[in-house]
């Protein structure tokens, strides 16, 4: 299994695309820092602002997760992969793990570079406002949960389709309309809206005194819903991947 993950990592990190994403992330932070240079900012405040760049990481997560399986079908390499003495379940899981590792890498990279760039541009003085290291890390924590669900969903789409382009586009459309759907559903206070995945992915709604997306939602409820979706997505992708006749 470790070997398989190593393989997936090799294929991921030897693609130029992967490093362009990394480079862009750092570049955007530097541009941010330039814009904010003359404001009264602390390095922690900068780290806090940078934590919102995780929405870009979500985009990378979707691109990577939704293409990692489908691209093997597009390129025809899937058949070379599946004729080994390794079960399809292990192959699929190694790909999933490698996606999660990549997302973790991007998150940690984003956090560390925001500290470094923050220090360089704003010095080491601590903040005058109430931002602490804790709030920054908390933000990353909530984001991780969102990213986990987004990636798992995109990964399922990836195992359902043979074309990586189609898979990426579909995942994007769903990702970008999800918040609109939640908004519309909550406007009409549609009762079943609370069962919708994206009504539950942002757990901040329970911690920062905001209203929940729908009436009667609790933290336990959301966690339960997330777990159900998580298991469902994995079940669907495994079933599709194991069942499929490979005719590329």
């Amino acid at each position: 299994m470790l070997n398989l993950v190593q393989n997936e990592n090799m294929k991921l990190y030897l693609r130029i695309r992967t490093w362009i994403m990394v480079g862009l992330l750092v570049l955007i932070q530097i541009i941010f820092a330039f814009f904010l240079e003359n404001t009264v900012f602390s390095w922690l405040a900068f780290a806090d602002v940078s934590s919102y760049l995780t929405s870009i990481i979500a985009i990378y997560a979707i691109v990577t997760a939704s293409s990692i399986v489908a691209s093997e079908f597009s390129s025809g390499t899937i058949k070379m992969l599946l004729i080994r003495p390794v079960s399809r379940t292990k192959i699929l899981m190694s790909k999933y793990i490698s996606v999660l590792l990549y997302i973790s890498f991007l998150l940690i990279l984003n956090l560390l570079t925001s500290f470094i760039i923050g220090f360089i541009f704003f010095g080491s003085a601590s903040a005058s406002n109430d931002i602490t290291l804790g709030t920054v890390l908390q933000n990353y924590g909530f984001t991780s949960i969102e990213l986990l669900m987004t990636a798992t969903f995109a990964f399922m789409i990836s195992s359902l389709f043979r074309s990586s382009v189609l898979s990426i586009i579909l995942s994007f459309i769903i990702h970008f309309f999800s918040s609109t759907v939640v908004l519309v559903l909550s406007q009409f206070n549609y009762t079943y809206g609370k069962f919708f995945l994206y009504s539950n992915t942002d757990l901040r709604q329970y911690f920062y005194g905001n209203q929940t997306n729908f009436e009667g939602m609790t933290l336990t409820f959301s966690i339960f819903i997330l777990i159900v979706y998580f298991v469902l997505f994995h079940f669907v992708s495994l079933y599709a991947f194991k069942k499929r006749d490979v005719v590329v």
Binding site: N3, N7, M10, M80, I83, R84, P85, V248
Partner: peptide
């Protein structure tokens, strides 16, 4: 499958990897 080595239609390899890296990839499996 432990005792099988195969080519099915065209052997599609990872084009962005070197031939050696491709072999390492399959060897790891």
């Amino acid at each position: 499958m432990h005792s099988v080595g195969a080519i099915v239609e065209n052997p599609e390899m990872y084009k962005f990897l070197s031939g050696y890296q491709n072999l390492v990839h399959y060897a790891r499996m």
